[in-house]
Amino acid sequence: MTRYALFLGCTIPARQPHYEVSARKSLAKLGIDLVDLEGMTCCAPPPLQSIDLETSLSMAAYNISLAEEADLDIVTLCTGCFESLAIANNLLRENAKLKERVNKILSNAGKEFRGNKEVRHYLQVLMKDVGIDHLKKNVTRKLGNLKVATFYGCHSLRPSALLKFDDPERPKLFDNLVEALGAKSIWYRNKLKCCGGLLRGYADDIALAIARDKIAMATKAGADCLSTLCPFCFLTLDLGQFLMKSTYHEEYNLPILHYTELLSLSLGIDPKELALDFHKIRVDKVLSKIS
């Protein structure tokens, strides 16, 4: 068993039980033990960075300090959380002056950031701790005919110098993990472009126009589904298709699945256990193709 402190974040428990269920079940099946720590707050993602960067860095450092106290590395499911925490972890390790400044703030709460633990996205954990070969051996339901449009989102890849996740212009990690399940990862135009999600709530029309481009391009490329790593991308692209119907009179019906859901299905977990009702766009087409 490899143990990690799970950083769950805000959006997944509040909106997407299907993500959390599939992540916990599949990672447990692959020998990853997730520990829920006491007291973690919001990671301080871009919306809070926009309000005050110093506060955001301090909050990220505080959350990391909880994992340091528990002597555990952190794994995140949400790409936004990964970005906030990994940036803080790497930036503060590299910049002693900034670390001192943040620690001065944390001292008011009796906390200290040391920088001796890792922050990992769960795809990195699958690669590093499980490994492609072991993963392949555990696949009992091959996703043989399924054409998957992978969507990395922005904050797994960029800023690459601090996140160190994959090549920001030609990433392979996610595609390799999809193909390990026996599915086909397909190329589509603007694959690495943003979903627009962070503009929701300020400029909904622009956010939707950006999301529409993603859905349209993946559909055009013949995708059976689009796979996400982030609850925000999921929301923007899944619920977004309802809005595309009312705004543009375009109906795509492209199922959006988190990678953990594809993973769970391929590990033989019963779809009935995966809370799939939380998808706005039905995933039946995907299920019928792989059963």
Binding site: E38, T41, N108
Partner: peptide
């Protein structure tokens, strides 16, 4: 598990957030 609000408030007060 709920967030530790006592600690968070101290951080938010120290930065002026």
């Amino acid at each position: 598990k709920p967030a530790n609000m006592d600690t968070l408030r101290k951080i938010l007060s120290a930065t002026g957030f």
